[in-house]
């Protein structure tokens, strides 16, 4: 599925916040590609920089406090680092669609959903009011909202959370973007609705041939939906691989911690789920260390003093961990990993 020119290509993206002297590093040299038609999952705990990554790419971070540096942020042929604010605006909504975590508060309460869907097409494609409304109706049908004609005139507060997330998806897909960024799209929804929404996103990706970046902390969602995974910790990508490779051969101490905290992540009949001790550091660790060292079950003496380099385990699998053989060996016999082999 991976072709020569990726939809989105990011190299060494760093973001820091705050005034000089007291700057806080939120992202530290993040690199990844999203191939055409692929779903890349960005996984990690809250605060690890998943959302900041996407906001930085879209130019949505407040200019006055965020400093963004990158070797490359390339959307197709367009260099997003050099794009003017106006050019970035036409990228947002037209070439990159975005859906967010909380559908209950993500729609303007005082406008109908039909208006809010039609608005994107009127802004980017210059459609007439009538044509945009007709397209909005088709889109509501596309995201499988029952009785779409009636919903067109509904206000957000008249719809359920799942419905509203479908409306958000309709807005994101209105201009048939080449990339969809879904930032924890199911976190605020019921479990049954979660599955429906993920299925919808996966189906639409196929139908429309777009790429998807799926930001999530749910490895279950990753396993069922994504093609490739990038695991993030404290502002860095610590491991990246196709889903099957990652789950067959987890190699970073943090990936191991995530898998162990799943049902079946340790033994067949555990009565209590394992957890990763401690909390995510608020911002990235000192530059000369692996940020996960303190919480890591596999930490070596060198982890606290040297930053582990990115190493290729296989062609598509890279990992920044000094003890990756031990990690892989320790997880080889867990039910979760065995299920993937």
């Amino acid at each position: 599925m991976i072709t020569a020119s990726p939809t989105l290509s990011v190299r060494d993206l760093s973001v820091s916040f705050g005034a000089t002297g007291a700057r806080l590093q939120a992202l530290d040299r993040v690199s990844f590609d999203v191939a055409r038609g692929e779903i890349l999952a960005l996984v990690g705990e809250s605060g690890c920089g998943k959302s900041v990554t996407m906001m930085a790419i879209l130019g949505l971070l407040p200019e006055r406090v965020a400093r963004i540096e990158a070797q490359r942020i390339q959307l197709g042929e367009l260099d997003l680092r050099k794009a003017t604010p106006k050019a970035l605006r036409t990228v947002r909504g037209r070439r990159i669609g975005m859906i967010f975590q909380d559908p209950m508060t993500s729609l303007t309460p005082v406008h109908t959903v039909g208006f809010q869907i039609a608005e994107v097409m009127r802004a980017h494609q210059g459609l007439s009011r009538r044509a945009a409304q007709a397209r909005a109706l088709e889109l509501l049908d596309l995201v499988r909202i029952p009785d779409p004609r009636r919903r067109l005139d509904a206000y957000p507060h008249e719809l359920s959370g799942g419905m509203r997330q479908r409306v958000m998806i309709a807005i994101a897909l209105a201009c048939a973007p080449e990339l969809l960024i879904a930032d924890e799209p199911t976190t605020a929804l019921d479990v049954t609705v979660q599955a429906q929404i993920m299925e919808l996103i996966a189906d639409l990706r196929r139908e429309m041939g777009m790429s998807v970046v799926l930001i999530t902390h749910d490895l279950g969602v990753v396993a069922t939906t994504a093609d490739r995974v990038a695991v993030m910790y404290a502002g860095r990508i610590v491991e990246e691989a196709p889903v099957a490779d990652l789950f067959r051969n987890p190699s970073h101490g943090y990936t191991a911690g995530l898998i162990r905290s799943l049902p079946g992540g340790e033994t067949e009949r555990q009565t209590r789920l394992a957890e990763i001790p401690g909390n995510v550091p608020r911002f990235a660790a000192p530059p000369n260390a692996c940020a996960f060292t303190e919480r890591c079950a596999f930490a070596l003496p060198g982890c606290a003093t040297t930053r582990p380099p990115d190493e290729q385990i296989s062609q598509a699998h890279r990992c920044a961990c000094f003890n990756r053989e031990a990690v892989a060996a320790a997880l080889r016999d867990t039910p979760f990993v065995r299920a993937w082999v």
Partner: peptide
């Protein structure tokens, strides 16, 4: 509010 973030993600103009 979150819905203002949505309008930015939609690429709407500042006056809008």
């Amino acid at each position: 509010e979150n819905y203002i973030r949505t309008t930015r993600a939609k690429g709407l103009s500042a006056p809008r």
